[in-house]
């Protein structure tokens, strides 16, 4: 209940700021669109070897794939950033101390802020993905229930990871700088993640599964780009495309497992670190 009360306050705050700085919001989206178009033009279509490389994965919609990966990467970068840079910024301005003194607790306040921030990010990213995909002649396939399920799981996966990093930042302030590298790693993984990268020796494959973005990106690309179809061999040796629901797709179950794992680890680490920071007397300060 208290989570929804805090979320309402966050929605009011975000709405006021978005409305007050509408020009900044709008230009941000235009700049994002422009940057993506330049990246696609520069990296994919101007470099034959890059396109060739992408085609090795037998993906006919390389540009759309790239754009979607880029946007998911930006989303991951942003969500984890809310816990690191956001936390540092709030500590520097004194707002964090106020949140720590809220009766709902720091974790609930952060969760609410992140949900509101993520919904805003999903809406603006969605518009950008649609615009860029349309511009390059690609196509995305919409299937409401799988997409909502995937976005929710992806979000909680990243929030769990963010809580863990944020908890560490509460105590060890300089972890914030290391977190930038982690966020860039997640971003890169989201851009290039596809089913084929899991074909590795099992320890490496397991590590990739445990990272919070790998299976989320693979599943999102499976639904949005591949339209939940798989290529199988027909009785005469020919390849045919068959529909296979997301809920029967193995990476989806890896995603659920990773989501449960990161949520548990994140909340546990955050609460422990918050408690430790309270004892050290550094809670809310930077």
């Amino acid at each position: 209940m208290s989570f929804f009360l805090v979320m309402k306050a966050e929605i009011v705050r975000s709405f006021i700021i978005m409305r007050r700085y509408w020009f900044r919001t709008l230009t941000g989206m235009f700049i994002g669109y422009g940057m993506l178009m330049v990246l696609i033009a520069g990296f994919i279509y101007s470099r034959p070897e890059m396109e060739e490389g992408l085609n090795r994965f037998d993906d006919p919609t390389a540009a759309t794939n790239f754009v979607l990966g880029f946007i998911i990467g930006m989303f991951a970068f942003g969500v984890v950033g809310m816990f690191t840079q956001g936390l540092q910024g709030m500590a520097a301005t004194g707002v964090l101390e106020q949140l720590c003194m809220s009766p709902h607790g720091l974790a609930v306040n952060f969760m609410a802020q992140t949900v509101v921030g993520a919904v805003t990010s999903i809406i603006s990213s969605g518009i950008m993905v649609f615009a860029v995909t349309w511009s390059v002649g690609g196509m995305l396939h919409w299937d409401t229930i799988p997409i909502l399920v995937l976005l929710t799981l992806t979000f909680f996966n990243l929030v769990g990871f963010g809580f863990m990093v944020g908890g560490l930042v509460l105590v060890f302030k300089q972890v914030g700088q290391v977190a930038i590298i982690l966020r860039m790693g997640l971003f890169a993984l989201a851009v290039f993640a596809r089913e084929e990268i899991l074909d590795q020796p099992w320890p490496l494959a397991l590590m990739l599964h445990l990272l919070p973005i790998t299976d989320a990106t693979i599943c999102l690309k499976y639904v949005l780009i591949k339209n939940q179809t798989m290529t199988v061999m027909g009785p005469d040796g020919e390849t045919i495309e068959v529909f296979r629901s997301l809920f029967l797709y193995p990476p989806f179950y890896w995603l659920i497992a990773s989501c449960v794992l990161w949520t548990f680890i994140g909340l546990t680490v955050f609460r422990f670190m918050e408690d430790y920071s309270r004892s050290k007397g550094t809670l809310g300060s930077y």
Binding site: L5, A9, V12, R13, Q98, L99, S102
Partner: peptide, 13 residues
């Protein structure tokens, strides 16, 4: 707006 925001965080509605 600040007072409304912080009031909501502290359960005043």
């Amino acid at each position: 707006e600040n007072l409304i925001y912080y009031g909501m965080l502290k359960d005043v509605r």
